[in-house]
Structures are given as C-alpha cells and as structure tokens.
Amino acid sequence: MAKTKLVLIGFLLSSYFVLAQKGYQLIEDLHYYSMSTQATDAYLKERCKLDVYFPKDTTNVPTIVWFHGGGLEFGSKHIPEGLLKKGVIVVAVNYRLHPKVKNPVYIEDAAAAVAWVVKNIKRYNGDASKVFVSGHSAGGYLASMIALDKHYLAKYQVDADSLAGIIPFSGHTITHFTIRKERGIEGTQPIVDAFAPLYHVRKNAPPFLLITGNRELELLGRYEENAYFYRMMKIVEHPDIELMELDGYAHDMVYPAIPLLLNFVKKQRN
C-alpha cells in the first residue's frame, strides 16, 4: 500500500513535473505566454502550455515542435511515441480551441509557442537554429501558417525563414474547415484567403516536407491540396520541398510518417 501511495503522490506533483527516461527528461506544463498576458485570460492561462522532452547530456540538439490535431476543436499535447529517445528534443504544445476562441487565435498561439522555443530551447540543450515545426492535421495547418505568413512570428522578433524546416502531416493548405465553419461556409466549399497556407506561397520559406495518407483514403481533397501547394512552391522556385503520399494509410498516418520526419531532420542538419 505504501508503495502505491508514493506512486500516486509522484503523479500529483506540481506542473513542473520532471521525468527521467534513460537519459531524457520531460518537463511539463511550461507557460509560453508571459505572466502579464496569462493574467488577462483564464482560458489562455489554463491551455497555453507546452512540454519539453530533451536529452540530459547532449547539447546543440535539433528540436521538433509538435502541434496536435483535432480540427482546432479538440485534442491535447502529447509526444508521439515514435519520437521518443531519437536524439531530438520534442516540444509538445497545447493551444486554445474552438468554440471558446475563434480564428486567428489558434495561429497566434502556435506562433507564441514557437517563438518561446526559439528563445528558450538552449536551456534544454537545444540549438535555436535547428528548430523544426511539425504536427498532424490541424497541427500541420498551424505549422504551415506560422512558417508562411511571417507576421505571426515577427510579432516576437522571430524570422519565420530562420526555422530549420516545416513538416505538416496531412495538413490543410486551403483555409481550415473550422475557420470556414465559423463563417458559415460548408466544409465542401474550398476557400483560399489570408488564412490558407496556399495564399502565402513564397520562394524564401523554410524547407518543407509534406506528408499525407493515400489520396483515395484521406479526408476529402487533402492529398490534392498538398500536391497543388507543392506545385505552386516549385513554380515560385522554392529550393527545398518534398511531397510524400503514404499508400495504404488514411488520415491517421502519424506512426508511419515519423521515420520520414526524422530522416528530413537528419538531412537538413547535414
């Protein structure tokens, strides 16, 4: 009984709970907005936190910022199992969700989190010049938006072009369907406006790896959106973009895509 109590007490420690895992530590629930900003919004204070999973004894490590999916309406920060103990830092981010907030709050939170990483990752053995941004579905959409529309990160004096790479997993390149829903637009009506990564196609964006499931199994049009974005980036002469379609996999294609993400990180480091 005493042993069980100790385990429970361990899990009920403060939000800065540190977990050792064979050379790694996990620090949970770090706020990425300032204390003064947190004081203005209880939901922001509750939700806008991130976890940092990092190797204890290695420095200048590349970092993968991971945004969870869930249609901008649900989901929670987590570190994909395939990224554990892979020689990289992983930062898992929570952001505010619809219907408690509306666009562009989701994108603003994503930018604030990435800016926090760029400015603070050295404390966790990372290198600010090796920050990669990824995520699945809505998370992939957020990764693309903050990398392509530079004004979100510029608010924090971070140049989006300094990011080492962007790896959206099955992310929208048109305006997100939840943002369209907020305007009363059906999910089958595509829109390309300032809230679409496609709207911000440009040559000098960071390197991109686009990954989707099989075009016949994916959410409607998701592969084709990414294929069009890929083509337009090639037309503007972006020098480093790839598109990969995972045969046999539908929208839930995170696990088989993780090795592609890690290979991309390794390639960009060389």
Rank of each mutant, 00 (worst) to 15 (best):
Lys5Tyr: 14
His98Ser: 15
Trp66Gln: 00
Arg222Lys: 14
Leu219Trp: 09
Asp240Met: 04
Pro239Asn: 03
Ser144Trp: 10
Leu153Cys: 03
Gly69Ala: 01
Ala20Cys: 13
Leu8Tyr: 12
Ser170Asn: 12
Met253Cys: 15
Pro239His: 05
Phe169Met: 07
Tyr95Val: 03
Tyr156His: 06
Gln157Asn: 15
Pro256Ala: 00
Asn270Trp: 04
His176Asn: 10
Arg183Lys: 15
Gly135Met: 09
Asp193Tyr: 12
Ile166Ala: 03
Val105Thr: 14
Lys150Val: 10
Ser14Arg: 08
Ile89His: 03
Gly23Glu: 11
Leu50Gln: 07
Ile174Ala: 07
Phe169Thr: 02
Met232Ala: 04
Ala257Thr: 07
Ile146Met: 06
Met232Arg: 10
Val133Thr: 01
Asn120Phe: 06
Thr212Cys: 11
Phe195His: 14
Met145Leu: 11
Gly221Pro: 03
Trp116Met: 05
Arg215Glu: 15
Lys155Leu: 03
Tyr43Met: 08
Leu262Asn: 06
Leu163Met: 10
Gly87Leu: 01
Ser14Met: 05
Glu46Thr: 11
Met253Phe: 04
Ser36Pro: 06
Asp41Val: 05
Asp149Gln: 12
Lys181Trp: 13
Pro207Ser: 06
Lys181Cys: 09
Lys266Ala: 15
Ala115Val: 00
Gly221Thr: 02
Arg96Leu: 05
Gly165Phe: 08
Leu84Gln: 01
Arg183Thr: 13
Ile191Trp: 05
Leu6Glu: 14
His68Thr: 07
Ala147Lys: 07
Gly139Arg: 06
Val52Asp: 05
Ala196Gln: 12
Gly165Asn: 03
Ala2Val: 13
Leu163Cys: 08
Gly140Thr: 11
Thr40Ala: 10
Val117Trp: 01
Val201Met: 10
Asp149Cys: 10
Gln38Arg: 13
Val91Ile: 01
Phe74Thr: 14
Lys5Met: 13
Tyr106Glu: 08
Ala143Asn: 08
Lys181His: 11
Asp247Cys: 00
Leu209Asn: 09
Ala154Arg: 08
Lys267Leu: 09
Pro168Cys: 08
Pro207Met: 06
Ile107Trp: 10
Leu97Ala: 03
Ala113Ile: 00
Arg269Asp: 09
Ala250Val: 07
Asn226Trp: 01
Arg202Val: 01
Tyr141Ala: 05
Lys130Asp: 06
His98Val: 11
Gln25Leu: 14
Tyr228Asn: 01
Gln38Met: 13
His172Cys: 08
Phe177Ala: 10
Val265Lys: 08
Tyr43Asn: 11
Lys155His: 09
Lys266Arg: 14
Lys181Gln: 15
Ala227Asp: 02
Asn60Tyr: 09
